[in-house]
Design a protein around this nucleic acid. Structure first.
Length: 801
RNA sequence: GCCGGUGUGAUGGAAUUGGCAGACGUGCCGGACUCAAAAUCCGGUGGUAGCGAUACCGUGCGGGUUCGAAUCCCGCCACCGGCACCA
């Protein structure tokens, strides 16, 4: 009988929905396992074949954990605010709410057709007011603790989205989402003080089970460096403070550079003889886009300040000051001491402006290039530091600065505060009003959720205002504190807001008194296993760790960290090895695969495609192998024989396969788990029959991967109940071993023969057997044996001369 | 430039405390079934030489360590990802 996947898969999906068999239990005495995948943005394009790669992998984990007796939470929801929906809505004159609803319906149907064991009773949606009520609540708590503040500052402005972007959203100088040019624009913006958590965000990584590349990428992004702040005195009497990671080179500082935007420039305006040239340079720098300004290989430019110079605190030398756009206002103090002998950028600048270069660390040739090696150099021309190693000199000079009150050690981070406002409609309204008397005032919690007003037009404005700004009826309000005139904040939150805490809501999704009950959070947190894309490492993953730590600090959640374990899947590429995209015409639609081959085959194929962590090209031809596997498994029912337990020929194979599949699921190697089951299946067909017990074992093993065909087989075989009610099979370590093994026989490391021996044979016996072999005996004839090696169960190597 | 990763048959990929390279799948070749095709089943399939047993070569390139290297070390090359004037 052929396997009819179409009706069978639908039948079981309906049954799972009806019985709610995958709903997580609220029996908090059971051992728990919280298994999480990144919830999708329900785009108009529907599901991508990349989505099921992650969802299937953790579905396998979730299903196996349930069979092992855990209370498993494997939820799904929608990260539904965002620009594509808004843009589609604008173009087609449909409200974003409707667009979102339709997209979610489509996604839901697609996900259900793949048979994932999500707990649909806990579905969350970031655009649901009952959900974003709590997103707004968290924002208010941040505001109350001084971690949300509004400030005027230069921000990244996407010229196409007409909206500001967080630093994390600017990739290679262009907008992460649309690829358009990003320019600098001064705007008043809500900011979140993620920098306050920089140290903890780095340090706490140590105790987490994240794959190494995620940790490294987050650390690099946060960018901690240790150095010193040094106070130089300007000839105006002002203190000009710089940050440096090389305080040891202080004697080699021959000039200073301030960023063009440095505030002291304004202060010194009347003392600067060339103020016009300075202002012209600053204006030019301001006009440049981020991309132009940070282009690395461009020539150094700058202007020397005429009329003001600085005194090097360590030796009293008067040195010139420049402004140049290679110094950033937003990092350190916005000014540097330049040591051209030992910094590549300073060296280039010094060569161009013909400034003196002093060697203070021996080991290179500072006339040819900057010598930047810290490990081997010895201090020279450096007063009391001369003769020290770089490391010792750093300590000595920092102590000296501290003692002389001219500086101190200092840690800096590349991480910047998070720009949190967006000038768009389809996002959470920021629940703050501006009162003429009281300033910024949060809405009382009783007024949450603050809903989006219904509007006719939500097009972005050219002047950079939010589409909500013209709605005077909504904007004008009264101050919750004094009752006076006030206006609402019209910017909305970025898409990353709702996704920063959604995993908390799954624990208790219908709670109207709190983001989730204490009891539920105590039980479910932390997430035991979280899988998602590498592209979120410095965005969602970092943001949500920040929010979680904040919530921990105010006692709203019981754990310091949200996710105990983080893994990441590789991308599925198009058949031509390029990234899948409409414009490349290489997009594979998961619906087509499910229709043609069925969900089980699709799931197996996506897991079998290769190493889960690596990118893999789609290959239509290879799917057949998985389809054959499903059909051959189904056909096992035709060769079921009498008898119990495992047949002797296959007993060890079964134990080994159970072991392999069990371990491989836990280490995210579904590809080799499937290969092992294919091998076992081949072994069964070679034997020509299978016992009911054997079939039961294989069915349970395969169930997490191919849930439909396994349930159907279980049912037609009348094995009783359903597979989901069974227990995960156990293996016996002893029985994984074969009685006899084939070992390789090497002479001088080259294989000359293979022989069968008892698995537990001693070295002595093995060697005796080997030497009795005709071929080996002939090889050894007339040679001197120097060494004999035996690796148990693997090989014998005889070294001869 | 800095950080991380990858490189294995025709092809996707297996194999890591150093121990039989190429598991499993695809494709291809041959056979069975069929009027025929598809599907299915059986056998073969790294390269070179040979009828053959077998021999030699073989994991990006060049060295090294070792009885033994895809795996470890040194030096390169290519590709992918991230960061990038962060002092």
């Amino acid at each position: 009988m052929n396997y009819d996947f179409k009706t069978t898969e639908k039948k079981w999906q309906d049954k799972w929905e009806e019985t709610g068999v995958f709903h997580a239990s609220t029996d908090y005495t059971m051992p728990k396992f919280y298994c999480l995948v990144e919830f999708p943005y329900p785009s108009g394009q529907g599901l991508h074949v990349g989505h099921p790669r992650s969802y299937t992998a953790l579905d396998i984990v979730a299903r196996k954990k349930r069979l092992q007796g855990y209370n498993v939470l494997y939820p799904m929801g929608w990260d539904a605010f965002g620009l594509p929906t808004e843009n589609f809505a604008i173009k087609n004159h449909i409200h974003p709410e409707i667009v979102t609803k339709n997209n979610i319906a489509h996604f839901t149907q697609q996900l259900k057709s793949l048979g994932f064991s999500f707990d649909w009773s806990r579905e969350v949606n970031t655009t649901d007011p009952e959900y974003f009520k709590w997103t707004q609540w968290i924002f208010i708590q941040l505001f109350k603790k001084g971690l949300a503040y509004k400030t005027e500052m230069p921000v990244n402005w996407c010229t196409s989205c007409k909206c500001v972007l967080a630093n994390e959203e600017v990739v290679g100088g262009v907008c992460e989402r649309c690829g358009s040019e990003v320019v600098r624009k001064v705007k008043s913006q809500w900011m979140l003080k993620i920098t306050e958590y920089a140290e903890r965000l780095i340090n706490d990584l140590d105790d987490l089970d994240y794959i190494e590349r995620v940790k490294i990428q987050q650390k690099n992004w946060i960018g901690r460096s240790t150095g010193a702040e040094v106070d130089f005195t300007a000839t105006t009497g002002d203190t000009l403070t710089v940050y440096t990671t090389r305080p040891d080179t202080l004697f080699g500082a021959t000039y200073m550079v301030m960023s063009p935007e440095h505030p002291l420039i304004e202060k010194w305006a009347d003392k600067l003889e060339n103020i016009d040239a300075i202002k012209a340079y600053r204006d030019e720098a301001a006009r440049k886009s981020d991309f132009e300004r940070t282009e690395v290989n461009k020539d150094k430019t700058g202007v020397r300040l005429q009329g003001v110079s600085a005194i090097n605190p360590v030796n009293g030398t008067e040195i010139p000051i420049f402004i140049s756009d290679y110094v950033l206002v937003s990092y350190g103090t916005g000014a540097i001491m330049a040591v051209p002998g030992h910094d590549t950028r300073d060296w280039e600048f010094a060569k161009k402006f013909e400034l003196p270069i002093i060697e203070v660390v021996k080991g290179g040739d500072v006339e040819k290039e900057a010598f930047t090696d810290c490990a081997t150099g010895v201090m020279v021309n450096s007063g009391f530091l001369t003769g020290m190693s770089v490391e010792d000199a750093k300590k000595a000079i920092t102590e000296w600065l501290q003692k002389e009150n001219k500086g101190h050690s200092k840690v800096n981070y590349k991480l910047r505060d998070w720009v949190f406002s967006r000038q768009r409609y389809w996002g959470e309204p920021i629940p703050i009003v501006k009162c003429e008397k009281c300033g910024y005032v949060p809405l009382p919690e009783s007024e949450l959720p603050l809903r989006l007003p219904m509007v006719e037009s939500y097009e972005p404005t050219e002047n950079g205002e939010s589409p909500l700004a013209p709605l005077t009826d909504w904007v004008n309000t009264t101050c919750p504190v004094c009752g006076g005139k006030a206006t609402r904040e019209t910017d909305t939150m970025p898409q990353w807001a709702g996704s920063s805490w959604y995993f908390l809501r799954y624990c208790d999704p219908h709670n109207s008194d709190a983001l989730a009950s204490e009891e539920a959070l105590n039980y479910w947190l932390p997430v035991d296993w979280y899988n998602g894309g590498m592209e979120h490492t410095t965005l969602h993953l970092l943001y949500s760790r920040f929010w979680h730590k904040f919530l921990y600090d105010i006692g709203a959640v019981p754990t310091r960290e949200p996710y105990a374990k983080r893994t990441s899947h590789g991308m599925i590429l198009g058949e031509n090895g390029e990234k899948m995209s409409k414009s490349r015409g290489n997009v594979v639609n998961p619906d087509d695969i499910v229709n043609e081959y069925g969900a089980d085959t699709m799931r197996l194929y996506e897991m079998f495609i290769g190493d889960f962590e690596k990118a893999a090209p789609w290959n239509s031809a290879s799917i057949k192998g998985c389809k054959r596997f499903v059909d051959r498994f189904w056909a096992l029912q035709d060769i079921v024989c009498d008898g119990e337990g495992y047949t002797p020929a296959l007993e060890s194979a079964f134990h080994k396969t159970i072991k392999k599949v069990t371990q491989d699921i836990d280490s995210l190697k579904a590809n080799t788990a499937i290969a092992a089951m294919m091998s076992l299946l081949n072994g069964i067909y070679e034997q020509g029959r299978v016992t009911a017990d054997e079939l039961k074992t294989l069915t349970i093993l395969l169930n997490p991967f191919a849930p439909h065909v396994t349930e159907e087989l279980w049912s037609v075989m009348n094995f009783g109940g359903t597979v989901t009610e069974q227990s995960w099979p156990e293996y016996d370590e002893e029985k994984c071993k074969e009685d006899t093994v084939e070992i390789a026989v090497q002479i001088n490391g080259k294989i000359r023969q293979r022989i069968n021996v008892a698995a537990d044979i001693s070295q002595q016996d093995a060697l005796a057997l080997v030497k009795a072999d005709e071929k080996i005996a002939a090889e050894l004839e007339g040679k001197t044996v120097i060494k004999e090696l035996y690796v148990k169960g693997k090989l014998v190597n005889i070294v001869v001369k």
